[in-house]
């Protein structure tokens, strides 16, 4: 059947009519992607629409939801914990993402020099990225302990003050940022792959023209790496807005309740989790979800728009 179908030339009757081969391909194409298509609708589009609906209701998870209009949104506007959670999350993201880009870039450039044992560095930098966040966070509870932690031992040895990392609201989020940096190792590998893709001739001709190392970095390396940097920022933003596990573990999790000193570890998804699954306010949590959805779409679009000013696409743009 198929052999015959391939040899028959598609009859282009009208502009929008499909030939036999095209119709056959469409059928098979859709069939192959159908698992994703079903999941996209059932586990993506529908839940998002359902979230919009739930956000307009009072709903505990039992009985049926009662429509209350935009009440959840006005409550949110006046809810200091919502603002606190939004502030904590943005504070974390704004610190963690740029630091992550700088760390990854620095490691990648160092690995791109004449170091033959680069495979060892790659393995070591990548390792923390595949370790479970919950386990790393538990280790940080020990590492950051003001009484016996390794971090404060190093700080006191260096003559620096030793903060109460998990007890002082001014430092708790910095602990989250530190944990996030362990994930910068995998980005260093992505950046390294990017650096290796830059044609050597560019550096050679720049050197002939008398450009120094810093100038070569600024005029060749950085512009050509901007697409990868943008990619890191976009993914980092999405992951930053959903930070939960590290904050949850650092506060002592389910057992101690609360979210760190002065709610300083109450991240947005942590608050969403509390509302939905500890306080049983599913309607309110749905409204929080809608705001998170809109915020991430708007922020991603803003980053893309901002990036137009600095991302270099090597003349591929028409």
């Amino acid at each position: 059947m198929t052999a015959a179908a391939t040899s028959v030339k598609p009859r282009s009757v009208g502009r929008f009519r499909l030939g036999t081969l095209e119709r056959r391909n469409l059928k098979w194409g859709l069939l192959f992607i159908s698992p994703w298509a079903f999941g996209f609708i059932a586990l993506g589009v529908f839940p998002i629409l359902y979230t919009f609906f739930l956000s307009l209701t009072r709903y505990t998870g039992f009985r049926s939801p009662t429509l209350i209009g935009f009440n959840n949104y006005t409550t949110m506007w006046n809810d200091p914990d919502f603002w606190k959670a939004a502030y904590n999350t943005l504070y974390y993201t704004v610190l963690a993402v740029p630091i992550g880009v700088v760390v990854a870039m620095l490691l990648a450039i160092a690995m791109n020099q004449k170091v033959r044992e680069v495979a060892i560095y790659r393995a070591i930098f990548y390792l923390p990225s595949i370790l479970p966040v919950f386990a790393i966070s538990f280790v940080f509870v020990v590492l950051l302990n003001p009484g016996y932690g390794l971090v404060n031992l190093l700080l006191t040895t260096a003559g620096l003050p030793s903060p109460n990392w998990l007890g002082d609201p001014a430092y708790t989020k910095l602990a989250l940022v530190m944990i996030a940096q362990l994930g910068a190792g995998q980005w260093a590998l992505v950046f390294l792959a990017g650096l290796r893709g830059i044609p050597i001739e560019l550096y050679e001709s720049a050197e002939i023209d008398g450009a120094g190392a810093f100038r070569r970095f600024r005029s060749i390396t950085l512009p050509l790496m901007t697409p990868v940097i943008l990619y890191d920022i976009i993914i980092g933003l999405s992951f930053g807005l959903q930070v939960f596990t590290s904050a949850y573990i650092l506060t002592g999790g389910a057992t101690r309740g609360g979210a760190g000193p002065d709610n300083s570890l109450l991240t947005y998804v942590f608050y969403l989790y509390q509302q939905a699954f500890q306080f049983g306010s599913m309607g309110y949590a749905a409204a929080l979800s809608v705001v998170l959805f809109l915020a991430s779409v708007i922020l991603a679009m803003a980053v893309f728009r901002w990036a137009r000013g600095w991302v270099f696409y090597g003349g591929e743009e028409a």
Binding site: F46, Y50, T51, Q242, Y273, F277, S289, L292, F293
Partner: peptide, 21 residues
């Protein structure tokens, strides 16, 4: 492209709805 675009969406957005479903 639609499929790839969903990589950027934070998963927790649909947590409440999925739990209920």
């Amino acid at each position: 492209y639609l499929c790839v675009a969903t990589i950027f969406l934070p998963y927790p957005v649909i947590l409440v709805a999925l739990f209920d479903i």
